[in-house]
Amino acid sequence: MASQEARPWGTVAYDVCAIVVCIFFLVPVLWAVFSAFQPPSSLFTFPPNLDPRGFSLENFKAVFATGNVPRYAVNSFIVATASSLITVLASAMAGFALAKYRFLGRQFILVLILSVLLIPLQVLMVPVFLVLKTLGWINHLIGIIIPPAATATGTFMMRQYMVGIPDELIEAARMDGASDWKIFWRVILPLSAPALGAVGILSFTWRWNDYLWPLIVINNQQNFTLQLSLANLIGANTVEWGTLLAYATLVMVPVLVVFLCFQRYFLKGSLAGSVKG
């Protein structure tokens, strides 16, 4: 780690080796995407067809014959967007209260939020299902938008960020006669833009990727999300591998784009010690 002025061949070989490891690691996904572009005739041949002239989009066309895919895409988009907006707003509000107010029960509520929200939905799926049934949310998109929207990670990240906002700004606004809500809306939110972005982006990908919750809540095809309809194809009796892989490729594109554009936010999330929320 000392200064390396001239890079000896050993270092270059090391770099190449490390890069190969990285690429090899991604083979399972790359292979799925690669296979999605193969015409059904050469899908199962080994050694595989590497000639790009032999690639085809046939599988992608077949995806749209499996069901109302645009509808599922819209559903997925509505769910991910609505749910992460709620997450961002709710955790910003909670984070503000926990970071900038002193009040009776503050410590208790902080511990409560962090520990209770760490209990995974998996463990509580049966009683939560019955709660949703009572609310009449089964088979409605709202049933997969609201329940996962309160996350420990979101609250935690917002609070951590807002602790760093100087109290003087809040005091000054208060002197000017601003209400608590106005202070939150006009002073705190604009200053917390980076944290808001991080929480929003993380929760968008979580909700886009959700499978367990839609599986339990949604039964009618109308309200399927992309993940749910793809999973149904995996379980089908006759598996059309080409179609399946093309579908999987389409489903992962939005998340990959978001991830590649906002990579540093994901790093932040993982440093906050966030399990998928």
């Binding site: 993940q227 995996i234 998340v255």
Partner: peptide, 25 residues
């Protein structure tokens, strides 16, 4: 720098996509 992106990609993929890829592999 490459690993920051590459190694994290499987973690951002959905369980459905991960299962599909591995089932194929």
């Amino acid at each position: 720098l490459l690993a920051r992106v590459g190694f994290y990609i499987p973690f951002v993929l959905s369980p459905v996509v991960v299962a599909t890829s591995w089932k194929w592999l």
